[in-house]
Amino acid sequence: MNSDKTPLQIRQMIRRGEHNANTSGLAQGFVQGNLAIMPQEWANDFLQFCQLNPKPCPIIGMSSTPGEFMLPDLGEDLDIRRDIPKYRIYEHGIMTQELNDVSDVWRDDLVTFVLGCSFSFEEALLADGLEIRNITEGVNVPMYRTNIECRPAGRFSGTTVVSMRPMKAADAIRAVQICTRFPSVHGAPLHLGDPSQIGITDINTPDFGDAVTINEGELPVFWACGVTPQVAIEQAKPPFCITHSPGHMIVTDLPNSRLAIL
């Protein structure tokens, strides 16, 4: 794992094709972001959707003009077309391909949204001595579709996707206290305990990411997840969209401390 690299070094490695795995645990101390890119005519509806659903869709950055792909406010030499390990392309709500570089499909009418990611608060949990099981096991965090409805906005609607980390009850309470300080990266958990109460039928079969071990005496703890926009895109069916592949984030130069409420 390249945890000792700077965000710029990690982005350069990704751009050169030297890292194409998930980004959990990389560039400790710096914000990672989820991605949603769509045509300008759809952008206002999506912006409103994010504003109405700040838990799963907290905006930490966006392009200033359509077609802009360098995002200097988020990082030095940050090229949103090439600096994520894996992208997903959606056409009319259907994922048609995954790519390591979207330069060849880039368009001048595209608007980029970067959303806060739970990987950012993982650092605060680890610093407090809490285990993050997906990091321990070296896999992508498990993510699930739920029955928690988002507030609709224009053409966008859908249900919330959550990420899950198993914890003992006392650790879960501490995690709530810690993550409440990070509203820009999903904040406190949405749910603790029985997965069926939020529409998850099989905790061992995540919809995105990888399953992790849940030990006896542990609770599954669920946070709102930035894959939620992908569910909204599936339902809204815009003609063209680009997202990150779940777990494969943009690593920014923003320090996590900037997003914390002290």
Rank of each mutant, 00 (worst) to 15 (best):
S63D: 09
D73Y: 07
S24G: 15
P54T: 10
S245I: 07
G61Q: 03
G226W: 02
L74N: 07
N204C: 10
L192G: 07
G61I: 01
V185Y: 02
G75I: 00
P246A: 01
L99W: 07
F113Y: 08
P39W: 01
L115A: 03
D128Y: 06
D101A: 03
M143Y: 02
P246W: 00
Y144S: 00
G33W: 00
A232C: 03
G247T: 13
V185A: 09
D202H: 14
Q51D: 11
C179S: 15
I214M: 10
R81Y: 00
A172E: 06
F182M: 15
A232V: 09
T23Y: 04
Q32M: 11
D45R: 12
T243W: 06
E234L: 06
A224C: 09
S257E: 15
R11F: 05
F69T: 13
F49C: 04
K168R: 15
M70D: 09
L99E: 08
Q230M: 14
T201V: 12
T213N: 11
T213C: 07
D45E: 06
W106K: 13
I214Q: 05
G129Q: 14
I89P: 04
A172L: 03
S103T: 15
L126N: 11
Y90I: 10
I242C: 07
N256M: 09
G199H: 12
N22C: 11
Q32I: 02
V105Y: 07
V31A: 01
G247D: 07
L47H: 13
I148M: 14
M62Y: 06
T228C: 02
A211F: 04
H248Q: 13
F156A: 01
T201I: 12
E76I: 12
R133W: 02
S3Q: 13
S196A: 14
K86D: 06
I135V: 13
G67K: 14
V185H: 02
G25E: 01
D45I: 07
C225W: 01
F208E: 02
M62P: 05
E98M: 14
Q12Y: 00
G17Y: 08
G199D: 09
G17E: 00
I250W: 00
Q12P: 02
C57H: 10
F156N: 03
I148Q: 12
D108V: 10
R82Y: 01
E122R: 05
M1P: 09
D77W: 04
N100E: 13
P220N: 01
G138H: 10
T96G: 02
G199V: 11
I233W: 02
Q230Y: 04
V212T: 14
H191L: 01
E216V: 13
N2R: 14
R145S: 09
H248V: 04
Q177S: 12
V105C: 12
I10T: 14
K55G: 08
M249K: 11
G116V: 03
I89A: 05
I132Y: 00
M62F: 06
V105Q: 13
W223M: 02
M62V: 08
T243H: 03
V111R: 14
K5V: 05
